[in-house]
């Protein structure tokens, strides 16, 4: 028996267990969820396994759902834009620091990622409340006279999600900054380019793929965020994820909740796969 012959079957033996687990625990449950979204439901009769489009019709026609999905994606877009505006300069600044400082501040960026989202959101709830530190500070500075409303507002949710998700943007941009030739700025300087020109013409084009992949991550996580909108937004300000939660655990209308979840999944898959394709096609030739 030669080595090469045994190796022909190896990949399937080695990936087999994981593949079975994923078939049983991802493909089948997701399939069942999509199926569930086509089932009927009634207050007293519960889930009835009869094919119906009524959940989907409801999700697509009721303005209540439209408003929630619109809000969800509005928040996701704002969070993504803010993450780019803050995260890209911060990644660049981090990259230019002396190694010792850089690893210390990397802890500041990555550390919060490892702390439970619940604890982080709690901190923001304490900061943003009407008697919270932010409002007290702003009043003390004389910038405002009455407290600003952050709790149960979109602004509050956006601020918290920026905090929760910006590490992903910084890590993605930083990874692409590290691939940059450190001499490249000097090369541009020697050719007579100004700081701003270097940024615009030399650095930025090279880190665009990092920004885009960071954006995809931030966007999809923001659009599907649950704990932060649930705590900051409360019952009043629903997003897609909290809507599905309510349908499942409060209203107990599982088929409708399944339709909401399926729609969210479908929308996110289309957006992320679509933009990934776009990025790959646009930048494949530059970054092989």
């Amino acid at each position: 028996m030669s080595l090469a012959v045994t190796e022909r079957n190896s990949p399937f033996l080695l990936t087999g267990p994981a593949l079975l687990v994923f078939l049983g625990l991802v493909i089948i449950p997701l399939g069942m969820t999509v199926l569930l979204s086509f089932y009927d439901w009634g207050q007293y009769k519960g889930i009835v396994p009869e094919f119906t489009l009524k959940n989907w019709v409801e999700v697509f026609t009721d303005s209540y759902f439209f408003e929630i999905f619109l809000r969800t994606f509005r928040i996701a877009i704002l969070v993504t834009l803010a993450s780019i505006l803050i995260g890209v300069p911060e990644a660049y600044i981090l990259n230019r620091m002396a190694p010792a400082w850089r690893s210390a501040f990397l802890l500041v960026v990555i550390g919060p990622l490892l702390v439970s989202v619940v604890a982080r959101t709690l901190g923001w709830a304490l900061l943003l409340g009407s008697t919270g530190l932010v409002n007290q500070g702003l009043i003390a500075l004389g910038l405002i006279t009455t407290p600003l409303e952050f709790m149960f507002t979109e602004t509050g949710v956006v601020i918290v999600l920026i905090h929760v998700l910006i590490p992903f943007m910084i890590l993605a941009v930083w990874a692409s900054l590290q691939r940059l030739d450190p001499q490249i700025e000097n090369a541009a300087l020697s050719l007579g380019a100004s700081r701003l020109t270097i940024w615009r013409r030399v650095i930025l084009p090279q880190i665009v793929p990092g920004i885009l992949s960071g954006s995809i991550i931030v966007f999809s996580l923001a659009a599907s965020a649950f704990a932060s909108p649930a705590i900051i937004g409360g019952r009043r300000l629903k997003v897609a994820a909290t809507l599905a939660y309510d349908e499942f655990l409060n209203t107990l209308n599982w088929p409708l909740g399944a339709a909401v979840a399926s729609l969210l999944l479908l929308a996110l898959v289309l957006i992320t796969v679509g933009s990934n394709r776009l990025i790959e096609r646009r930048y494949a030739q530059v970054f092989e």
Binding site: F22, L25, M32, T33, S224, A244, F248, W254, A261, L265
Partner: peptide
Amino acid sequence: TLFMSPLMVPHVVLGIAFLRF
């Protein structure tokens, strides 16, 4: 892609799928 997919599938959706399953 399949093995990495739990990163991209919203955890709400996974939660619902597991609850149902």
